[in-house]
Design a protein around this nucleic acid. Structure first.
Lengths: 218, 218
DNA sequence: ACCTGAACACCGTTCAAGT
DNA sequence: ACCTGAACACCGTTCAAGT
C-alpha cells in the first residue's frame, strides 16, 4: 500500500488532465490536427481510456469552451463610469476568448455556454452599468446582444485573418483601386496611405456602439 | 456521332454541377454529413471523378461561399436616405448568407471572400451612403467593419440557436432569476413577461449602430 | 481529357475482454 | 473502476490504370 519512493507513479487519468492536454494540443496545432487518437498519444494512453471520462469528442470541445469561460474575469469597476464598465466587460470577454484563438469558432457556436457566460456573475456589473446609463430592461437586453454579437464577429474576423496569407488582402485592395467605384476607392486609398494600427482590435467599433446606446436614453 | 433519341445521355460532370449537388446536400443534411464520398454517390460517380474539377474538399466549400456571395444583390436605393441605404445593404448581405445557414461558419471564416464581397460593386452604394452621412474615408472603413462584424455575429448566433434545443435556454433564464444578481434578474424577468418578437433579427442592433455612426459627424 | 478502383493513412466509436 | 485492443464503418486523397 506504500507509495514507491523516487519517481512518482504515473498520475491517473482524469477529466481535468484530458481537457488540459486537449487544450495545449489545440493551442499548438489547431483543431484540425486534434483527434482522439492523437490526444491519447499525448496522454500516453489507449484512445479508449478517454471515453471513461468524457463521452465523445464533442464533449471534449464543450469542456474546453467551459474552461475558456471559466477564465473570464471582469476586474472590479466601482468608481468607473457606465461606459468604462461596459468597455471593461467587453474587454474581459474578448481577452478570455482570444487566449485560445483556435477555439473561437466553437465558442461562438455554443449558444448555451455563451448564454451562461452572458448571464453569469461576471456580467452583473455590465447589466447594472447599462441600467445606470438610463436604459430600460428590454433595451439592456438589446444592448448586451449587440455587444456580444459584435464581439463574436470581431473575434472570428481576427482569427480568420491570422489563418490567411496577408498578400491576398492587398490584392483585393489594389484590384479595387482600378475599379470604377469612387467611394470604395476613396476608402481603399486612405487605408493604403495610413494603414490601420495593429491595436485596432474592436475598440473603435465599441465606441460607436456606446455612442449609439447613449442616444437611446437622451 | 448522332445523339441517342429518348432519354438524354447522362450529362457530363462539371464544376457547376458538383457545387450545385454539394450545396443541396449541405442544405439538406448539414456540413457534418457532407463528404466527398457522399457527394460522389449523389452525383452517381466515382469519388475520384470530382477531383478532376476541384482539387479538394476545401475548394468545394470555398466554391460554395463564392456562390453565396454571388447571390448577394443590393436593390437600387436612389431616393433613399443614407440610413435606409445602409440598412438595405446590410439586409442584402444578411439574407444572402442566411439562405444557407449551414455554411455560415465557413462564410465568416473566409476573410478573403468576405473582403471581396465587402469591396464588390454591390457595396459601392454602402460606402457612398456613409460618405453622404458626413464620415471621412477612415470612419467609413470603421463603420463598414463594425457592420460586417456585427452581421457575422448575428448570423452565427442565429444559426447556433437553431441547432440547440430551446429548453436549455429557458433553464439559464430560470436559474438566473433565483440568483442574487438584481440587474440580470430585471432583464430576465422583462424578457419572460414579453418575449422577443420572432422578427427581431438584427434590426434593433443595426439601429443602435446607425445612431452611433450619426454621432461621429454631429 | 475524363473517369475508375484499389490502396493508404487516417478518423470516431462500439464492444468484449482484461485487471 | 479503469484501461486495453481488436474491430467496424467511415473519412480525404494518391496513384496507376483504363477509355
Amino acid at each position: 500500500m506504500a507509495r514507491k519512493a523516487g519517481r512518482p507513479r504515473q498520475e491517473a487519468l482524469s477529466r481535468e488532465k484530458i481537457l488540459e492536454a486537449a487544450l495545449s494540443l489545440i493551442d499548438a496545432h489547431g483543431v484540425e490536427a486534434f483527434s482522439m487518437r492523437r490526444l491519447a498519444a499525448a496522454l500516453e494512453v489507449d484512445p479508449m481510456a478517454i471515453y471513461h471520462y468524457l463521452p465523445n469528442k464533442e464533449a471534449i470541445l464543450r469542456g474546453l469552451i467551459e474552461l475558456i469561460f471559466a477564465n473570464l474575469h471582469v476586474p472590479p469597476t466601482e468608481n468607473a463610469s457606465w461606459e468604462e464598465t461596459v468597455r471593461a466587460c467587453a474587454h474581459a470577454y474578448y481577452d478570455a476568448v482570444r487566449a485560445h484563438p483556435q477555439l473561437i469558432i466553437y465558442v461562438v457556436g455554443d449558444v448555451d455556454l455563451v448564454m451562461h457566460a452572458a448571464l453569469s456573475a461576471n456580467n452583473e456589473q455590465l447589466y447594472a452599468a447599462l441600467f445606470n446609463a438610463g436604459l430600460d430592461a428590454r433595451q439592456v437586453f438589446y444592448a448586451v446582444s449587440l455587444i456580444i454579437d459584435y464581439l463574436h464577429g470581431c473575434l472570428l474576423g481576427e482569427s480568420a485573418m491570422q489563418n490567411s496569407d496577408p498578400t491576398s488582402m492587398l490584392q483585393h485592395f489594389e484590384q479595387s483601386t482600378t475599379d470604377q467605384y469612387p467611394a470604395i476607392r476613396r476608402v481603399v486609398e486612405a487605408i493604403q496611405q495610413e494603414p490601420i494600427s495593429d491595436v485596432f482590435g474592436f475598440d473603435i467599433g465599441l465606441n460607436i456602439i456606446l455612442a449609439g446606446i447613449k442616444t437611446l436614453v437622451k
